[in-house]
């Protein structure tokens, strides 16, 4: 077990957050959430569709015990749109959490730091527990936590790429200095990426594509849960320092030499 994870004054047993995008259907998504043990689950807003009947994800998600919804602001191009999205998400979810994401460029989906900062300032005042998706920038992380964000969510690599922890060096600085939880969001490909993030001191990870796009999402969700636990236990156990000089683990006496 990992130690409880406290976020916005609430405590969670799981340090694995799950996104609900890209799943082939609602049941596959629900099975993955259950297998992951995730208690913080992100959802997005979209316009209602008048032409066809759609899957209801709010009902099944609301029926899951121990799951808290974290509406995101995906689609927002600037701070003003993100604030509107957050208010709409709160109406639907009745959750104080918001994953603030403003990424106007569809090519790389990199978060706009200026609009994100401005929206965060407003949303904190509106009483939200604000979790901002951000570039892995220790200066921005400090600025966002200084204005009351409950956590920072630096990216590992671009959303949906599966390029893993490309920002490792910056994540180390963020972890070392942050006074709020650090949640790595975006880019994780395999459970080993999640373990590495937790080992280096991140408090939690948010995974979506790596699980939703797996051949067996529920099995992959469970694998990620194990990896997060392994990373956390490893951190507590004290990871040995790396060395550039080899040091044998077996005796090197020359008794085999004739």
């Amino acid at each position: 077990m990992t130690a409880p994870f406290t976020l916005g004054g609430r405590t969670f047993a799981s340090r694995l957050m799950l996104g609900t995008g890209k799943f082939s259907d609602v049941q596959v998504m629900l099975n993955a959430i259950k297998a992951s043990g995730a208690q913080l689950v992100t959802v997005a807003l979209r316009r209602i569709n008048r032409e066809r009947l759609e899957d209801d994800i709010l009902g099944p998600l609301a029926a899951l015990p121990d799951v808290t919804l974290v509406p995101n602001t995906s689609g927002a191009m600037d701070a003003k749109e993100a604030v509107k999205a957050a208010l709409l998400g709160r109406e639907l979810s009745r959750s104080p959490f918001v994953k603030l994401e403003i990424h106007p460029n569809p090519h790389h989906l990199m978060p706009d730091p200026i609009e994100t900062y401005e929206a965060a300032r407003i949303l904190v005042k509106e009483g939200f527990i604000v979790l901002p998706y951000m570039q892995a920038d220790p200066v921005l992380a400090k600025r966002l936590s200084d204005i009351g964000c409950a956590a920072v969510m630096p990216l590992g690599s671009a959303i949906g790429t599966g390029h893993g922890l490309k920002t490792l060096e910056m994540l180390r600085y963020i972890v070392r200095e942050s006074t709020v939880p650090v949640i790595v969001d975006a880019g994780l490909r395999a459970p080993s990426d999640a373990a590495a993030a937790i080992e280096l001191g991140c408090d939690a990870v948010l995974v979506n594509s790596a699980i939703a796009a797996a051949a067996d999402p529920a099995a992959m969700a469970h694998a990620f849960a194990l990896a997060v636990q392994a990373g956390y236990e490893a951190r507590g156990a004290g990871i040995m320092p790396a060395s550039d000089a080899a040091a044998a683990t077996s005796p090197l006496t020359s008794f085999l030499r004739s």
């Binding site: 996104g19 609900t20 995008g21 890209k22 799943f23 998504m29 992100t42 959802v43 997005a44 807003l45 979209r46 316009r47 209602i48 994800i57 709010l58 998600l61 919804l69 509406p71 995101n72 995906s74 709409l88 998400g89 109406e91 639907l92 979810s93 959303i159 975006a186 948010l206 979506n208 594509s209």
Partner: peptide
Amino acid sequence: APAWDAFALAEGDRVEVVTFAGGG
């Protein structure tokens, strides 16, 4: 929601009606 049935729309209003979808 509590205001929906009393909130009068005006000519030219732009309205968005949204719900939740999967998202990361």
